[in-house]
Design a protein around this nucleic acid. Sequence first.
DNA 1: TATAAGAATAACCAAATAGTTATTTAGTTG
DNA 2: CAACTAAATAACTATTTGGTTATTCTTATA
Lengths: 113, 113
Amino acid sequence: MANDSSVLFASVADYFKVLSETSRLTILDALRESGPMNVTEIAAATGLGQANLSKHLKVLTQAGLLSRNPAGVSVYYEIIDPVIFDLWELVCDRLKQRLHQQARSLEQFQILR
Amino acid sequence: MANDSSVLFASVADYFKVLSETSRLTILDALRESGPMNVTEIAAATGLGQANLSKHLKVLTQAGLLSRNPAGVSVYYEIIDPVIFDLWELVCDRLKQRLHQQARSLEQFQILR
DNA sequence: TATAAGAATAACCAAATAGTTATTTAGTTG
DNA sequence: CAACTAAATAACTATTTGGTTATTCTTATA
């Protein structure tokens, strides 16, 4: 086939790429747990360094997952793309299934020995 | 909080990372369209080089998304993780929404001028 | 206006990785 | 066994990117 879905593939890949880093998932989880936070608060919640955090927040914002709201000296970030939690849940469920399968395989293995 | 979901975060991130490359999405799409194929067939369907393709197939297999079945000289690969299509759909729907929003914003912009 | 604080950016380094070319391994058939 | 084919691997290059340190920019306040 090789139809030109290449642009679509690239968009989807980019979206997944944003979600493929532990630090960014940590940030998203913190914002999900605590609601909107400024950078200092996110830093405290995640343990990430200021500059590093700032870069990740930029990535997440430009990807359309977070909104950015300056308030005085601070800047507040908030999750605006709820879809990521559906994704999160799907993947988690899948990973759980995997673990169960592995556990079952292991039991089987024990029996056969 | 900083509870130790770090292992979970890493697992989820790894899963998304596998799906964050255009070439691998192309492979998955080809296998979804045509069903099980051997490496030569996948190469023809995707246009990827043999060695490169082989590496991506290894990644996808080790991630548990594909099964690997040698048959004579050939090796057939098949999708065994249907969840990826749910993920695919969620992301595509989301990207479509984005485009619509952007279109609407653009219209608004035209009106205001 | 000078100072301080919060956040973004620049510059840099190290690690990871997609793609290529060349080689090796495994299976098939004459 | 020899020749051939399919797929995997090794070695290498170039690019990307996460993290750090130092600096700049912006806003608030004394």
